[in-house]
Every structure is written in structure tokens, then in C-alpha cells.
């Protein structure tokens, strides 16, 4: 017990030190904190896909649902604006994976119509509850459903952050709504340039 206690204190101090020295990213650095991108899902054409199919580009991963009244359209529109500020070459190296955690309502067709409104690099994905739970748990996030109203509409609670992966699929950054556009842009450019 006592040894564990001292070990814990030492580890805590070490973590603090690390936190203080590696802060040159302007959004949240999650390198080493999260595993590489991996999933089994269904794409907008109803085909089964894995993360391997999306390697080779810098990937932004975001969870949501198309009936989302606020967070999802706002976040996706903001991403669309940010990607629009990248030059042509850099843009070709980036894709956005929008994973719907509401597969009951979000059919592949509906997802395709929804994501195409934000740009051609926005790709809709969804899956079975097991597949979605596995992917959420992998990135330590979750989702859940509210009670349906008289019309059968319900609210879905889901992660509000964007996970950024490099071309090799390694987790790099977590981008929040509160991060300024320039900060996101600067960090994205850095990841695109570093390959």
C-alpha cells in the first residue's frame, strides 16, 4: 500500500512535468493517449468498411446524428469553413468521417444527403449498436437516447469533440468547439505537413 502511494505520487509529478513541457500544440494533444483508428462500420452506400479503407489521409472523426438540432451542424459547418482555408493540395489530404450513432433513423441514403451538404470530403458512416459502442469505447466517449416525444422524435446525446488522426491512423489531436479557428488551422497544417 505505502509503496503504491509513493509510486502514485511520483507518477503524478512525472505526468505534470510531461504536461508542462509538451504543450506546443494549440488544440489538445492526445498522442499516445488514444489508440490508432480502427473500426468496422457501414458507409453511405450500405457497404461494410474498416478503418483501413480510409488510411493515407489526415482524418477528422466526429460522432453525431443527422436529426441533431445544434452541435452537429454547427461543428460540421465550422470544419467545412476551416478546411476551405487550406490550399488545394492540403485539402486533398484531409477527410472528415461523420459517424452517426443513431442508425435507426440515419440510413445510408440519408447520411449521404446530409454529409454532401458540407463538402465532398465529408463521409457519413454508421453501424450496428455493437460496432458503434466498440468505436465509442475505443476513444473513451459514449452516446445515449432520450425519451421519444409524441411524434417519435428523440434527442441523442453524443461526443462533442473532433478526433484528429494522421495519415497512418495514429491519434493526434482532440478539437473542441471552444478552440479558435486559427488554432485548429495551424495544428491541422502541421499534421498535414508532417505526413
Amino acid at each position: 500500500m505505502r509503496e503504491m502511494r509513493t509510486a502514485a505520487v511520483t507518477a503524478m509529478l512525472a505526468l505534470l512535468l510531461v504536461a508542462c513541457t509538451s504543450g506546443d500544440w494549440r488544440t489538445k494533444d492526445i498522442s499516445g493517449m488514444m489508440p490508432e483508428l480502427a473500426f468496422n462500420l457501414t458507409n453511405e452506400n450500405g457497404q461494410s468498411v474498416t478503418a483501413e479503407d480510409y488510411r493515407g489521409k489526415v482524418t477528422l472523426l466526429f460522432f453525431g446524428y443527422t436529426f441533431c438540432p445544434d452541435v452537429c451542424p454547427v461543428t460540421l459547418a465550422r470544419l467545412s469553413r476551416i478546411l476551405g482555408k487550406l490550399d488545394e493540395d492540403a485539402r486533398r489530404d484531409v477527410q472528415v468521417l461523420f459517424v452517426s450513432v443513431d442508425p435507426r433513423r440515419d440510413t445510408p441514403e440519408r447520411l449521404r444527403a446530409y454529409t454532401s451538404a458540407f463538402g465532398k470530403d465529408f463521409i457519413g458512416l454508421t453501424g450496428t449498436q455493437d460496432q458503434l459502442k466498440a468505436l465509442n469505447k475505443r476513444y473513451r466517449v459514449t452516446y445515449g437516447y432520450g425519451e421519444p416525444d409524441e411524434n417519435g422524435n428523440y434527442v441523442v446525446s453524443h461526443s462533442g469533440a473532433v478526433f484528429v488522426f494522421n495519415r497512418a491512423g495514429e491519434a493526434r489531436l482532440l478539437v473542441r468547439d471552444s478552440d479558435p479557428v486559427e488554432a485548429v488551422l495551424a495544428d491541422l497544417r502541421r499534421i498535414i505537413e508532417s505526413g
Binding site: 465509442n136 466517449v141 459514449t142 452516446y143 432520450g146 446525446s157 461526443s159
Partner: peptide
């Protein structure tokens, strides 16, 4: 907010 909630 970042991690999502099990219910709303």
C-alpha cells in the same frame, strides 16, 4: 461534453 453522455 467532449465525451458524450449515456443519456441526455
Amino acid at each position: 461534453d467532449v465525451c458524450g453522455r449515456p443519456w441526455p
